[in-house]
Every structure is written in structure tokens, then in C-alpha cells.
Design a protein around this nucleic acid. Structure first.
Lengths: 333, 333
DNA sequence: CTGTTAGCGCGTTCAT
DNA sequence: ATGAACGCGCTAACAG
């Protein structure tokens, strides 16, 4: 076990060529005779040579790295985005440096700063909520930047996601069209999750347009969760028993609501309709598939990487990429 | 927007000191007079200096990086482990380089190789299932290695997790003690998830010890999911209607089973008891909290990082760290 | 407490 | 098709 990793020089020596030739073989760059290529690759295998990326990045100014900043890993939505990112990265030689901000722009700022220290090719962030200092750093260090999930604001570089305002609005239209009139809303912490608020605003706009408004609403101060959904719906129904439908800030909350109905003996849809957001797999496996809006989390992550890395190849230079959403009819509304 | 990042030299020039002095201030290393420290930090702020980590790693042989290899991000369990890792990392200046193996040791091998290229301080992997080539690389490049989730085998360096065999065994003992006799088992793809098989073996051992055996069992060829649990239980009950209790390979599967019971009008626990594994939050929010075994995923990730980075500080040099598990009584068994 | 010298391993540039 | 020289930005090892 020689804890001394072989370098270009070792490979060069063994293959009887110069270092730069080995470097060319490794990177598949420049003309190499198939003969020397053979000898070099043989030496590489024999020595178990692994290029030192730190050295490579230093020499070439820029690392094959993508910084990924996620607000949270507790909300299943972000691992799914990360999954899309990883899937797209798998076919490249880029790797991901992952940090979690806990929805705090100041934490985000610190992470951006330490990620930038690696001279990554791009940064993937969530939402549009950054400190001025963050924006300044981003401007100075020429990295590509993708802001994910939302497209309701002006991006720094590119944005990939969906319009949460429109999604909320369309949810409202859809439900009104299906005959619902007495709307309840059950939400979670808005300060952290700005997108939930945008959907709420869209929903209210749709109601207003139809001459309606929310009959009752309640917001949990906590992060979204099944439990929060369950308890918040319970609380809401104590105050305002006469509702047709309850729109939840997302599927987690809605599933909690569904469970509450099961426990309270409320017949879902017949007595009270439920509507979510995200289209999580588990919601579709409930005894009654949840009516909701499918956001395309995996696609968002995947698309972001493709756009960030493939910029030159495509002629498509949109700054805002709408990955869309679809209303999932389900059986709860 | 000057796309030319300032370097140590720029800071040194501005502060009227040498580069190494700036370097010392940045790293908080070696004695520095508070006067020069002040001037240097002022210059750093003024220029917006961010150290180049690639250069630092090259010079000092070794990067403040932890490579993290996860088999999947679809199974909620691994994001939770990652959460623990990130939480522990937050208070250090280490960052995580994340890769996903899709349960394939060959993919794992490629990722290990590219991670090693950064000279990380440590690698966090899952399970004990690695190719020979992977083991060889690990031996050569002196990195710390943690193998997570399982402690039922001999680790390369350290292992952090729980004994799945014992967890399965204890589940069996627990259920037998509660009077169950006719056991069913509903599982998922074992080839990918070796730990599920270990739990199964433990369960069977407990049954055998009590002179019992599985009355019926069925395994989905797919990855674990609510849907797979639902469908597999349904199939199982067609063949073997007379069961007291069904043990599932994990909570996702068990929750699916719960949903099947709801749909089929089977009274959970009274007619058929259900038992899971993991102790996911959502299982505890079902109308009847799921009876299961709590694995401590967050703790596993967090502990691994602490052990890997804090080795010198603690006198605790165990190679195997048991993060334990607890039986969660619930209301479904 | 501060500076000098040397070089980490590689890629760029220019030659041959 | 191949190579030599140089330097990327930083830190280790010594001075002083």
C-alpha cells in the first residue's frame, strides 16, 4: 500500500514519452499516434493512475464541478430535483458539490462563497431570494447560474421551473369549473417557502375573478408535513365546518388532510374535496388518488444541468425555461 | 464585473505584507500581530478575496472534501442520511461531493475513482458491497472510509449503522411475544437492497426459534414503494388468506399495505396486523400509527462525519459504530 | 512575528 | 505527432 499516488510523470516515464503526451491521451485532446496511445494507456492501467483534479483545475482555471444549493433535504421535492441533477451529470465528467441552506439567504451566501472557491463551472440555486452580497459574488466570478423551481421573477442567468402563480390560478379555475364554491385553504410556513405563497395568490386571483373568495383558511407555522396538514385541517374544520373543498399548500399537507378525513369519518370528495400540489407518488397510491398539480421536479434538475453545460451546443438561448405542470384529476376533487 | 478574481498576491500588495502572511491570516494559522491581521482582513474585504481551494489542495496535498456515495435518492432513507451528513459538515469547512451509484458496484467504482481525483479527506459509502478494484483504490489512496447503514460485516475502515439481522430478529421476537403466529412477508427487490434480505433472515431465525415459519411470502421484483407494497400484499392475500400479521421489508411497502387494507375493507390489526421498518414520519401519521422499527438515518450520517473528521480528538477508536434501532409500538401490530 | 524559497501536478503556449 | 518551458495560486519548510 504505497500511499503515494502516481502522477503524470510516473506514467510518462513508464511509457517512455513526455508528460504532455500522457496528458493529451488522458484528455483525449490533440493528435496522438495510436501506437503511443496504446503504450500510455497501458502504463496508466499498470500504475493505477488517477489524474489530480486539483492540479488540473489550477492549471486550466476552472473545475469540472457544479455547485448545488438546496434549501432543504427534508422536503422530498429537493431530493427529487437533486436526482434529476445527478442523472444529467452522470453522462458528463462534472461532479456535484452539494450544500444545504435551510432556507436562509445568509447561509446560502456562505455556501456560495465556499463553492466559488473551487471555481465551478456553474451554480444551481433555488428561488430568487439571495442577499446582495451573494449577487455581487456571482457577478464577479464568471459562473453560470441556474435558479430553480420558479420562473416568476427575473433570473440572474437562467431560471428553470414553473410559474407557481399560474399553477395556483389554474388550480382555482379547475376547481371552480368542477362546481366547487366554498373554498378552504390549508398552508404551511410561507416565510421559508415563497412559492407556496405565490400559488396561494394565484388561487385567490382565480376565486376573485369568479366573484368568490376563501371561506376559511389556516396556516401552520411549521414546515410542510403530513402531520401539519392533518392538524391544520382539523383546526380549520372546527371553525368553518361548511366547506366544499380544501386546497392545500402541497401534497404532504394534503395527504395529512386525507388522513384526518379518514380518522374523522369524513367522506373525501363527497363531503369534502381535497386538492394538493406536486403530484408525489405516494399521493397517487392513497385509497383515493389525490387530485393535485404535477410539478416536474426531476425534469427541473435535469434540464438545469443540460442548459448549463450544453449552452453552446443548442441554439436555444432562452433565459427562462418553463418545465410546466399538469393538473392531476385524481379522485379527491 | 472584472472576471479576474483577486489572489493572495493582490491582497498582500494591498496590505503591504507578504503572501504567506495573508495565507496565515486566512487560515488562522501561526502567530499574527493583531495589527497586520487587521490590515490584511481589511484588504481581503476590500478586494472580495476568495481563496482558491484547488491551489490550496495542490499545495497541501488533500482537499477539505468528503466524497459521498449514495445508492439512490429515490428512497427517502438516503436523503435523510445525507441530511445528517450535511448537518455535521455545516460546522466544519469541509464540503461534500455527492454521487449516486444506483446500487451498482461498477458505477460505484467509477465514482470512487473520480472522487479520489480530488484527494478528499474521506469517503462515505453505503454497505459493504464493492468491487475488488474499488477496494484496491481505497487501499492505495489513503482516505478515511465509512461504510454506512449496516454493521453486519467487516468494514474497510469504519462502519456506522445497525445490525439488520438483529433488527429483523427482534421484530420477529416482538411479534411472537404479542401473540402472532401466522406470519406473512412482503418484500421488494433483494438484489439491490441487501439489508432487507438480512432483516428477512433475522425474522426467519426468530420464527424458527419459536418453532414457527412464514406462512406465506411474496416479493416484488421492483424497488420498494408504496405502490409495490400495496400490490404485493394484495397478491399475497389472494393465495394465503389466513394470516395474523404481515411483516414488510420497509415502511414504504407497509404503508402501501395499509392502503390496500383500507381499500379492501380489512381492519388493520384486528383482522391483519402490519409491521414495517424504518420509522418514517409519514407512517406515524397514518390513521393508525405504523408499528415498525426506527432506524436512525440522520444519526448515521451525522455520526459518520463526526467519526471521520474527529478521529484524533476522541479516544474512541471503535471501527464499528452501532447507532441502534428501536421498536415503535404503533397501532398496526 | 514575518519573510524567502521551492514546488505541489497539471495544462497552455510555442516550438520542433 | 511530440516536447520544453512556464506558471496557475497556494502552502511547507525553513530562516530570521
Amino acid at each position: 500500500m504505497p500511499p503515494v499516488a502516481p502522477t503524470l510523470k510516473d506514467v510518462a516515464l513508464m511509457a517512455g514519452v513526455s508528460e504532455i503526451t500522457v496528458s493529451r491521451v488522458v484528455r483525449n485532446k490533440g493528435p496522438i499516434s495510436s501506437d503511443t496511445r496504446l503504450r500510455v494507456t497501458a502504463a496508466i492501467d499498470a500504475l493505477g493512475y488517477v489524474p489530480n483534479r486539483a492540479a488540473g483545475s489550477l492549471a486550466s482555471a476552472g473545475a469540472p464541478l457544479i455547485g448545488v444549493l438546496l434549501p432543504s433535504l427534508s422536503n422530498i421535492v429537493f431530493p427529487e430535483v437533486l436526482r434529476g441533477i445527478q442523472a444529467a451529470l452522470a453522462s458528463t465528467n462534472y461532479q456535484s458539490l452539494v450544500g444545504v441552506t435551510e432556507y436562509d439567504p445568509v447561509v446560502e451566501q456562505h455556501i456560495v462563497s465556499s463553492l466559488l472557491a473551487w471555481k465551478p463551472a456553474a451554480l444551481i440555486m433555488t428561488g430568487f431570494d439571495h442577499t446582495d452580497a451573494t449577487r455581487m459574488m456571482l457577478a464577479k466570478h464568471d459562473v453560470r447560474v441556474a435558479e430553480l423551481m420558479d420562473i416568476d421573477a427575473e433570473p440572474i442567468d437562467i431560471a428553470v421551473g414553473l410559474s407557481h402563480r399560474r399553477a395556483g390560478y389554474d388550480s382555482g379555475r379547475h376547481l371552480i369549473q368542477r362546481g366547487y364554491r366554498r373554498f378552504g385553504y390549508v398552508g404551511h410556513d410561507w416565510d421559508a417557502d415563497r412559492r407556496a405563497r405565490r400559488r396561494y395568490n394565484g388561487l385567490c386571483a382565480a376565486l376573485a375573478e369568479a366573484g368568490l373568495s376563501l371561506t376559511a383558511e389556516s396556516r401552520s407555522p411549521h414546515a410542510s408535513s403530513t402531520r401539519a396538514g392533518k392538524e391544520t385541517l382539523k383546526a380549520l374544520l372546527l371553525d368553518a365546518p361548511k366547506l366544499d373543498v380544501v386546497v392545500f399548500s402541497n401534497d404532504d399537507m394534503a395527504i395529512g388532510g386525507f388522513f384526518h378525513c379518514l380518522e374523522a369519518g369524513i367522506s373525501v370528495k363527497e363531503e369534502l374535496a381535497l386538492f394538493g400540489f406536486n403530484g408525489l407518488a405516494i399521493g397517487q397510491d392513497l385509497p383515493k388518488p389525490l387530485s393535485t398539480v404535477r410539478s416536474n421536479r426531476f425534469l427541473i434538475g435535469k434540464t438545469a444541468v443540460e442548459r448549463l453545460l450544453g449552452a453552446a451546443e443548442t441554439s436555444d438561448h432562452r433565459r427562462v425555461i418553463d418545465t410546466g405542470y399538469e393538473i392531476v384529476e385524481g379522485a379527491t376533487a
